[in-house]
Nucleic acid binder design. Structure first.
Lengths: 214, 214
DNA sequence: TGCAAATATGAGAACTGCTCATATTTTTAA
DNA sequence: TTAAAAATATGAGCAGTTCTCATATTTGCA
């Protein structure tokens, strides 16, 4: 596991080992990722073997490691894509908001959409679980929560200027983070209970979005 | 990983492979656990090696596996002890509660205590993180959340009989579970921010404990 | 065409959890 | 006391994994 200092220049462990300069390489990276996705879908990222990824992609293990420095990097790449997609989704939903009431309905809509997405996408779910196991991935998720928390905080502050900014900052981060936790919980129990849990969280949060100068 | 059916009778994979009948064995189990704890404290449960545990305990690997069926079982045992301790703590705190106001202060007190405990006990923190990685451990945590949620629900229903029982059941489980998530978050960021996060969660939850017939 | 850089390869190094045949110790019972 | 039986201890090594690296092949370019 000890990295060889000679082969790695100055910068930290990147997600891609080498930036693919040729088109074929870029396609290959995509192909690797799609094979990995299919394998994760079938057996989970934990049980996915690097040898399987290589075999399914029709390349050697060596080639696989030419692109990804380690197994976690594959999962990380997929996670980052999901993150980017959801951040866009959150940003566009919040952009339309102009009143507290709209913030409430935007939050509800967003949360329901997410829940459906989680239910429909086993790969995303698996990766979200795997994130908890890996330290680097946990940090990525934290950064992500902060980013989406900031999105919420800005919107919230815009539509409720009388609420203290500091309170909003703290709460927004927590609300987004716990939202993810709630998702994870909801999809790990039976369907009707999961639905109730999601609703319960929404109820809890919606009453936070009120005019308040405390 | 395939278990040998001949050596294991009917029951499922137990936490302890054999019930130690001799006193020396029982002491040995304790010794193993205390060594494991020290190692987890030093490097985390993930980096803890079974060979290290055996060496530190002054026994052979074979002996180690005589008592614990696998590495996860050691972590599981420690987790279950922490769980039992905290459940007792929660139960005794809630037992005294007779009014909604008291429920609120009991909840705050409990939550603060937990936070201090988490900050002071790196091993507990590590195990709590490790629980997320392992499927069995995640289930244990869920069972635990349900149990403490039930404790909260019973108390809550007792002091707020007008609140619908169903709403309480759902909320209580979620509140306890998200409480753990908040802890994990709070201890993974810098101290002052962690403090603020804990306070923010308390604030959010305290306003749930109100007379309400919705 | 020829040469250098980029890319591909897969045997196997390194590491780890865990097993099992065997040895030792303890208990039982005669 | 003693011998057989049961419980416990041992560690070499198996099985399974990630990842490396010396070497071969392909590609881009003069």
């Amino acid at each position: 596991m000890k990295s060889n200092p000679a082969t790695r220049p100055i910068e930290e462990e990147p997600t891609l080992r080498r930036t693919p300069s040729q088109k074929r390489s870029r396609e290959r990276v995509e192909h690797i990722l799609s094979c990995a996705t299919r394998l994760i879908e079938k057996k989970g990222s934990d049980a996915m073997r690097m040898s399987e990824v290589a075999e399914m992609a029709g390349i050697s293990i060596g080639s696989l490691y030419q692109y990804f420095p380690d197994k976690a990097a594959i999962v990380r790449t997929l996670a980052e894509r999901y993150n980017a997609a959801s951040r866009d989704c959150i940003a566009s939903e919040f952009a339309k908001v102009t009143t507290l009431a709209e913030l409430r309905s935007a939050f509800s809509a967003l949360f329901d959409t997410y829940y459906d997405m989680f239910l429909a996408e086993p790969v995303m779910r698996d990766i979200w679980s795997a994130m908890q196991a890996d330290k680097t991935l946990r940090e990525i998720e934290l950064v992500e929560s902060r980013a989406s928390g900031q999105l919420l905080a800005d919107t919230w502050a815009r539509v409720a200027p009388e609420t203290p900014r500091e309170k909003i900052e703290n709460a927004a981060f927590l609300i987004m983070h716990l939202g993810e936790c709630t998702m994870r919980l909801a999809v790990s129990v039976d369907r009707p209970e999961g639905d109730r849990i999601v609703k319960a969280y929404e109820q809890m949060i919606l009453q936070e979005f009120v005019a308040d100068a405390t």
